[in-house]
């Protein structure tokens, strides 16, 4: 009977090609978050609107007297609008520590000493946040559309509003990418998850408070470009084909959202390094 060698052995097994490490990082992050009970409660709450709207869809499809609550494009627009609170909560909860905790524990040099690029590392971390944010926006919205067809027993609404499929996808991706990269960029600026969360919450709330104040004083929403969330709402209205809620041209709002993503990526490129260079 052979004796198992308990000392160091050379590895002769298979190795995967470089380029897949981002998925390892993403899955590990997703598993770690799903292991937290509080986070599951947050996710559960985030789906509460879906449950309510699913009941309304059922009622409107099966009781002719409930025409008042019949679904429309606005229903889906409102769904995304109201989910933005949970987008904020999930972003702060799940995203604040994604890079900050790694920086605190000097984990970046562990990651980047492995055969993966900085872009892969960022993609993996973003993957965690994107997955959960899509889970509270795009996934329930799509399910609502499916439920509507199932409750109604026909595809009339879906066929008449087929553009909802790309609209919901594009808006969800825009919202999710903006939130994810902004949070990751702020997380990369600090070694404290709490401070990163504060920065994100502060940026969102501060710009909104400034906008609300200016709107209150001037009576016009032309300054909505100040607020990150107002810009997203404005672009969302255009994507869904409903009347834009603010006076800022939607092109400017889109430019700001895209600019935010670009600036966040630039910050990430600057901060995510295997070595801390102090000059």
């Amino acid at each position: 009977m052979g004796i198992h060698d308990q000392s160091y052995r050379r590895y002769v097994g298979p190795r995967t090609e470089p380029g897949a490490a981002w998925s390892v990082i993403a899955w590990s992050g997703i598993r770690a978050l799903l292991a937290r009970r509080i986070f599951l409660v947050v996710l559960l709450f985030a789906w509460s609107q879906f449950v309510v709207r699913a009941v309304l869809l059922y009622l409107s499809a099966n009781f002719p007297s409930m025409e008042l609550i019949a679904p429309s494009v606005q229903t889906f627009r409102d769904f995304f609008d109201q989910q933005s609170f949970f987008v904020f909560v999930v972003t702060v909860y799940a995203g604040a520590g994604l890079i900050a905790n790694d920086r605190r524990a000097n984990a970046l040099q562990i990651y980047l000493a492995k055969p993966l690029t900085r872009a892969e590392y960022v993609a993996g971390k973003a993957g965690v946040l994107v997955a959960f944010l899509l889970l509270v926006t795009w996934v329930p919205a799509m399910l609502l559309l499916v439920l509507q067809a199932m409750f109604a027993g026909n595809l009339t609404f879906v066929r008449e509003n087929l553009f909802l499929l790309p609209a919901m996808t594009v808006f969800a991706m825009l919202e999710v990418l903006a939130a994810s990269f902004a949070m990751l960029a702020l997380s990369s600026l600090s070694t404290s998850a709490r401070f990163a969360g504060m920065l994100y919450a502060g940026a969102i709330l501060f710009t909104t408070a400034i906008f609300q104040t200016v709107r209150g004083v001037t009576g016009s929403s032309a300054a909505s470009w100040i607020s990150l969330s107002a810009n997203l709402a404005q672009v969302g209205d255009v994507i869904f084909g409903v009347a834009p809620r603010h006076d800022t041209p939607w092109g400017i709002s889109l430019l700001i959202v895209v600019g935010l993503i670009g600036a966040s990526l630039a910050v990430l490129g600057w901060r995510v390094r295997g070595v801390e260079v102090v000059t």
């Binding site: 504060m198 919450a201 501060f206 408070a209 609300q212 104040t213 004083v217």
Partner: peptide
């Protein structure tokens, strides 16, 4: 306008946010 700024900015935003950020 001053009253509006006190209400909309300071009391609804600044005071609770600073309370959270510093207090916690």
């Amino acid at each position: 306008i001053f009253g509006l700024m006190i209400w909309a900015f300071y009391l609804r935003f600044t005071v609770p946010v600073l309370g959270v950020f510093y207090g916690t």
